[in-house]
């Protein structure tokens, strides 16, 4: 592994972790809103959240590029996103959000609402109930979902290359690095990155399985 390879690995891990943390608040809020109550437009929101999971990632990337590019929102604000590390963060966030939401939603649905109600009769307000009863009881599903989202972010390719490009040292993640190395015939470096990605993916998925398994037996 060269210094450049290590840089790619660290950048990927860092940006994937950051995207997981970024989507956590909105992901939990969405998951909770979808798990509880019936509100108008719920099925629409549900579908939109799941879209990135079923649409070609490149298409999602194109949407992001169009929205954030010069002729979209990017032209209105003086803050460059596309073809920067921020675009990588955004692409990873959008692509991994559905996994967190789906997993957390199931976990929230399994929390007995009676426990939350009784917590309220004991004087706890909405936020306190959420953080002391709902989240701890759904914790395993939430952590499992976070790890799945992290693993998805590690391997993200299509949306990232569309919106962030493939700029070595700037926006290049492991997947993009492998692609580029293979394209230019540097197979050895591609295999190094491949090894790193296998190890990372294994750790993330195994840990997530561990949490989901514990949830089942608990």
């Amino acid at each position: 592994m060269t210094t450049a390879d290590w840089q790619i690995v660290w950048f990927t891990v860092w940006v994937a972790a950051l995207s997981t943390l970024t989507i956590l608040p909105v992901g939990l809020a969405l998951a909770f809103a979808l798990a509880r109550g019936n509100w108008p437009g719920k099925s629409i929101v549900e579908t939109f959240v799941t879209l990135p999971l079923v649409m070609p990632p490149v298409a999602t990337g194109l949407i992001l590029l169009t929205v954030l590019g010069k002729h979209g929102l990017g032209g209105l604000i003086d803050f460059r996103i596309v073809f920067t590390w921020r675009a990588v963060l955004l692409a990873l966030s959008v692509m991994s959000l559905p996994l967190l939401v789906r997993s957390a939603r199931t976990a929230f649905e399994e929390v007995n609402p009676r426990l939350e109600q009784i917590a309220r009769t004991l004087g706890a307000g909405g936020w306190r109930v959420f953080f002391t009863i709902t989240v701890p009881l759904a914790a395993r599903g939430i952590v499992g979902g976070m790890l799945l989202a992290f693993a998805r972010a590690l391997g993200e390719f299509g949306a990232t290359i569309m919106v962030a490009g493939n700029i070595p040292g700037k926006t290049q993640t492991i997947s993009l690095g492998i692609f580029e190395n293979v394209t230019i015939g540097q197979n050895a470096q591609a295999y190094h990155l491949l090894g790193a990605s296998v190890v990372l993916a294994f750790i993330a998925v195994w840990t997530s399985e561990f949490f989901l398994r514990r949830k089942k037996t608990a």
């Binding site: 009676r114 917590a119 309220r120 009769t121 004991l122």
Partner: peptide, 27 residues
């Protein structure tokens, strides 16, 4: 949570992730 009405439901709804002491101190 502002009514000041205690409620012991049929299934008791003890918080399973908390100890007896933490349950007692919750309210």
């Amino acid at each position: 949570h502002r009514r000041g009405i205690g409620y012991v439901p049929q299934d008791l709804a003890l918080f399973p992730h908390l100890s007896v002491r933490q349950n007692l101190f919750y309210g």
